[in-house]
Design a protein around this nucleic acid. Structure first.
Lengths: 325, 325
DNA sequence: ATGAAAGCGCTAACAG
DNA sequence: CTGTTAGCGCTTTCAT
């Protein structure tokens, strides 16, 4: 690998001059500039960005933390982040944590070690305080609302979204309402439970824990749940499923086990993924791509000016009416 | 940002000793090691990986080149690469090209500039020779078969896969067979045309150019095509659609425009994405995740030992029978 | 306009 | 066992 020194030597100039040519500085005599250019091309020399990064303290890279990557939810966010990052010439470094705190810590560390200029966290298992402690080294944007830290955040109003979904079901005459979520412990799940409880109570309805199905992430999970519902003595007649793929699974399972949709089981999905269009699934679109885009912009703005305050930005959701309710 | 020098100073040792502690070298007196450890923790010091990368000439990062990221095809590959990369402690740098040669070149450049240890190219617009020229700087793996270069490759036998799909349709009595592809110019599209031509000719059938639909990538593209087919005077009665989401679009469009499936229009999708399961779409699974996984391994093996020869690895496909044929 | 030299933060001989 | 020193490849004063 040829370096700047060798180029300088071959061109008969100093490394500074080569550097100037490389960075389009003025104050280089035309003929020297010419000569250097030539030597550079002859050797198809390219500067070592590690070295440049080291000096500039910048990498033009943002780290995207996610638990795993085989779920359309994350892909929608990835696509949004990528789209925006591409505009500004940034790269996206995918950092998979599998919800492992050590792994998550290690990636946050990359901020301290300048491997990335900032972090966008789609998932989080570390305490807020710890997350926040890393933000001295660069902008951190989370995709989750919290009062507990003043990190920048882009998020969905999960409470409101869930309320509106439940209300929609109520308006359509369903009273035996349940829901499926991913991880029970996540912040959004807690919001959703609050929404569930409050909306039901407001309607004079009771909460049945058996109608709350956690660990519903993939299509197969949805199918299993439909199977269980088909055999419950007191089954829900409507379900909000946080994730269209899982919702699709419920739908398929329901068909398989003889449940008519929406007569016997109404379903509202989440995320407006293509599969929901395919199955005519009513769904709540939380605009994941936009969340990704905004997350990048928030990072970017702060990376330009570290003094601006962290921003919390709520992204609107929309209920897309189709035929599963 | 505290650095190794300051740690050394505070601990009253030399930077080498700190370095040794950092890298778990033997030959450090226990008490000094202890002291250094403490100072490190007090300052929550973390080494600057830019600097380490600079010295080691390694980044533990592989660049993944793709044209865009809002398509499930790439997500499946990403997921496969990530899964494997995670095992070996590697990161994945997403590099979006939008099929722009300059952009692609720039990313390849990152190999020369040591920003990544290797490249996995899901898409390619540059000539093979140019791609290959970068491979001096590190392993390049492409997800496409070619004789024109001796880069490592992980690929599907597109010819065979298409033949078997067409044969399947023939076996089911369809003779008016067409197909939908993405970019007409891609290598795989050419393979597919060959397969189409040969299989049809072998069956004594003719090739109709009007039954070949290019630029069919997203769901909406599929819907449009179904619309066109519904109004064609001499429409195909069976279609292979390279991509389940697009195939789903065809299916939906067909329903919308009154075409019964599979009686009036048989459909074979591609990739065995969840949506195909959801719609009971017969599909050809080219095992994209496995392609991603293998691509990473190929990169990894060569990164350990640059002398081993490039490998071409074919990933088997499977026709998944469901109800759209 | 140009070059010498001092780093960026770290590792790795080398010499004790 | 430990410190000194010379880089890794580049940018950026500071002289000239």
């Amino acid at each position: 690998m040829v370096n700047i020194k060798q180029i300088a030597q071959q061109a008969g100039v100093s490394v500074s001059t080569v550097s100037r040519v490389l960075n389009n500085h003025p104050y280089v005599r035309a003929d020297k500039r010419e000569r250097v250019q030539q030597v550079i091309e002859q050797n198809s020399y390219t500067p070592n960005s590690q070295a440049i990064n080291l000096i500039r303290g910048k990498t033009k890279t943002v780290g995207l933390i996610l638990p795993f990557s085989h779920h359309p939810y994350y892909h929608a966010i990835i696509a949004g982040v990528m789209e925006e990052a591409y505009q500004y010439g940034y790269h996206v470094l995918l950092c998979q944590t599998s919800y492992n705190p050590d792994q998550e810590r290690e990636y946050l560390h990359m901020l301290s070690t300048r491997q990335v200029d900032g972090i966008i966290a789609c998932s989080r298992v570390l305490p807020w305080a710890e997350l926040q402690s890393y933000s001295d080294s660069g902008p951190i944007v989370v995709c989750e609302y919290t009062e507990e830290s003043n990190l920048s955040a882009v998020y969905t109003d999960h409470y409101g979204a869930f309320c509106s979904g439940i209300q929609y079901l109520l308006d359509h005459g369903y009273t035996r309402i349940g829901y499926c979520i991913g991880r029970k412990t996540s912040a959004s799940s807690q919001e959703r439970f609050r929404a569930y409880q409050n909306t039901l109570h407001a309607a004079g309805l009771e909460v049945y824990q058996e109608w709350i199905f956690p660990d519903c992430i993939h299509m197969s999970d949805g199918e299993q749940i439909a199977k269980r519902i088909a055999t419950m003595e007191s089954p829900p007649s409507a379900l909000i499923v946080t994730g269209d793929e899982a919702a699709a699974g419920v739908m398929l399972g329901a068909r398989q086990y003889g449940l008519r949709i929406p007569e016997q089981l109404a379903i509202i999905g989440y995320d407006n993924q293509p599969i929901s269009a395919g199955l005519q699934l009513t769904t709540i679109d939380q605009n994941l791509q936009e969340i990704g885009r905004q997350a990048f912009s928030l990072f970017y703005e702060r990376s330009l000016d570290a003094t601006i305050m962290p921003v919390k930005r709520q992204i609107p959701y929309t209920l897309i009416e189709r035929h599963s309710v």
